[in-house]
Design a protein around this nucleic acid. Structure first.
Length: 613
DNA sequence: CCTCCGAGCGCG
DNA sequence: AAAGCGCGCTCGGAGG
């Protein structure tokens, strides 16, 4: 039942309809409500539809006016749409935006938003495929996990609270930009999970076999690992040494006269005992096997696609986290296993020195911007005579952003204070604020969490008349830790904002690229009705069908890692996709920093494999 | 049997 | 050499 309205809605709020909140009939009868709002966020239409009708409804709306879809939580709504072949252009994710607004210093009146505790559910990982199908069962099945409410009235009420809060913001434009970018990130994460990373299982298996030996029978250790372990035991003169337990290994090492305090890599390297080289080799093998071995391959790669779970906004700084699949830790060793489908290419691009560039831009430090302009920023420091070598430049810059005070780094950082006073002033004062228990904000207004109860207790204990030197030490250390956290927060968080703006712009540019012609009458835009019924995968078992109906015929994002993207594109569109990546980077810089003289140069390669370096 | 924690190491 | 920030994952070991 619908009451069509003459006006094209600016916002469409989706939620579970009130009737079905109690009914809970499985598989059928779940009703969804869509409420249309105009620019002023006034109600101009209501619709009720079955869950199975939603994709078609959304597709038609996208073809008409491309409203911003308001979701309680993107992972709850979007995967089913993607599975049905529907991609949307823009959304507003109430859970993600709530997390920003309830903390942002820019919002004068945060009370209403912050007190709506049910929306503070913390990072939610995307539901796995079977759960996504049963649109309403997620909450029940994972009752121990806090989730946001998905019913229409809750969504409307939260949207209204957020709108009010935004009106009290000192710089609403900035915050709106952040909320839009954050929400777009939610779409990208869902889309990348749906598309998957094209993964060459045979190549992965080859790498494993080369390092570890052929795949062993269930739970057995691979042959090459066993052989290396024997070398270690022989060199130690301890045939029963257990290499898998830190404690036992440490005993064996001591017994062999190797005096180390731990079994960590850097400490072992100090010794030149004959057991060390094979032991380090064993540790490397062991790491590969347990983190990305055959078990990982079985669990996370299927039909030639690696589908990790991304968690947008999962890090307080605004970076993404991951939950399952280890998307943020794929070892470089395995990069050759990322392989484009036949006739396709992978375009990998990463930003050189993103964080220092973000710092230069947000602090308006012209000298620092100049050092990185059109060149490697670290080499720029050498050219300017600030430090002697690129390595020193890197240590100094990282030390400045992380707050290191000792060693080479502590010695080099003061030189940056002379050369880049604005940039250093920004991070130094962020550290001061944090050490005193205050909060700091990124360029677009994401604010750091206030230090916890424990932290404040430690500080006040040090201020008591009977405080011991130990109390004072502990307080000083905690203050320093918090200062280093806030120092880094402004830089890491602003860099994350740049990256979100890059992603958000890129996904729209990619959706404008044409679909490849597979013999079916194609469409020219992903968002105007590229339905599942004409997908290549269904009609001819095309090689790309593991990417699903939305992504099997068009360039799309498959991977994102803080300052790096990988796009999977038909070979004939690889150059256009590369250009889209460059243009998106340029517009992200302008969108955030206007005409600041900072550039964000990319290292970009087009290839069949994503092997790096 | 379970959960929790630190060590260690992968990524930026 | 690590140092100085932010993460996730696996394992062994400890405690329930």
């Amino acid at each position: 039942m619908t009451n069509p309205s003459a006006a094209v809605p600016a916002w469409c709020v989706i939620g579970r309809a009130p009737d079905s909140a109690l009914g809970g009939v499985r598989g059928m009868g779940s009703m969804i409500a869509v409420v249309d709002l105009d620019d002023a966020r006034q109600r101009i239409g209501n619709h009720h539809l079955g869950a199975d009708e939603l994709p078609t409804f959304v597709r038609e709306r996208e073809a008409q006016g491309r409203p911003r879809w308001v979701f309680s939580d993107t992972p709850n709504w979007y995967p089913a749409l993607l599975a049905a072949g529907v991609q949307i252009e823009r959304c507003y994710d109430l859970r993600l935006t709530h997390a920003i607004l309830m903390r942002s210093e820019l919002v004068a009146d945060r009370n209403a938003v912050a007190s709506a505790e049910e929306w503070d559910a913390g990072p939610v990982s995307a539901p796995t495929a079977p759960e996504a199908e049963a649109l309403f069962e997620v909450t029940e099945r994972r009752s121990h996990i806090k989730t946001v409410p998905h019913d229409i009235e809750s969504a409307l009420a939260e949207f209204a609270r957020q709108s009010t809060a935004l009106q009290t913001a000192s710089d609403p434009g900035r915050l709106r930009l952040l909320l839009a970018a954050e929400s777009a990130g939610g779409l990208v994460a869902a889309e990348m999970q749906a598309a998957g990373v094209p993964w060459d299982i045979a190549e992965h298996d080859r790498i494993l076999a080369e390092e570890l030996g052929p795949r062993p029978a269930r739970d057995a250790k691979p042959a090459k690992m066993l052989a290396v372990a024997e070398q270690v035991r022989a060199a130690l003169g301890d045939p029963r040494a257990n290499l898998d337990s830190h404690v036992k290994l440490l005993h064996s090492l001591h017994a062999a006269g190797i005096n180390v305090a731990s079994t960590s890599k850097w400490e072992l390297q100090e010794s030149n005992h004959a057991a060390i080289a094979p032991l380090l080799e064993y540790k490397k093998q062991s790491r590969l096997l347990s983190a990305n071995g055959w078990a990982w391959l079985d669990e996370w790669v299927s039909e030639g696609r690696y589908r990790p779970v991304y968690v947008p906004g999962g890090v307080v700084t605004g970076r993404w986290a991951a939950s399952g699949g280890g998307a943020l830790q794929i070892p470089r060793q395995l990069r050759p296993a990322l392989r484009a489908d036949p006739g396709w290419r992978l375009i990998s691009a990463d930003v050189a020195q993103l964080e220092p560039r973000a710092l230069a831009a947000m602090s308006g430090d012209r000298a620092m911007a100049e050092a990185g302009r059109g060149r490697d920023l670290y080499s720029g420091l050498v050219d300017e005579g600030i430090v002697a070598t690129r390595q020193e430049a890197k240590i100094a810059v990282l030390g400045a952003m992380y707050g290191s005070t000792t060693g080479d780094s502590g010695r080099l950082v003061p030189r940056l204070r002379t050369s880049f006073p604005a940039a250093m002033g920004l991070v130094d004062s962020a550290a001061e604020v944090g050490a005193a228990g205050g909060v700091v904000s990124t360029w677009l207004g994401r604010t750091s969490p206030v230090p916890g109860e424990g932290w404040r207790r430690v500080q006040s204990a040090a201020n008591q008349f009977d405080a011991t030197p130990a109390d004072e030490n502990r307080a000083r250390r905690a203050a320093g830790d918090q200062g280093r956290f806030t120092r880094n927060f402004v830089v890491q968080g602003t860099a994350a904002e740049w990256a979100l703006a890059w992603l958000a712009d890129l996904r729209l540019r990619l959706s404008q690229l044409p679909a490849i012609d597979d013999g079916n009458p194609g469409t020219t835009s992903a968002v105007d009705g590229d339905g599942g019924t004409t997908s290549a995968g269904e009609t001819m078992g095309h090689v790309a069908d593991a990417s699903g109906p939305v992504f099997s015929r068009r360039a799309h994002l498959v991977f994102f890692l803080h300052d790096e993207v990988i796009v999977h594109a038909p070979a004939q569109h690889a150059e256009a996709a590369a250009e889209a990546i460059r243009e998106a980077a340029a517009s992200a810089g302008t969108l955030l920093f206007g005409n600041a003289p900072v550039d964000f140069p990319l290292d970009l390669t087009i290839s069949e494999r994503a092997a790096k370096d």
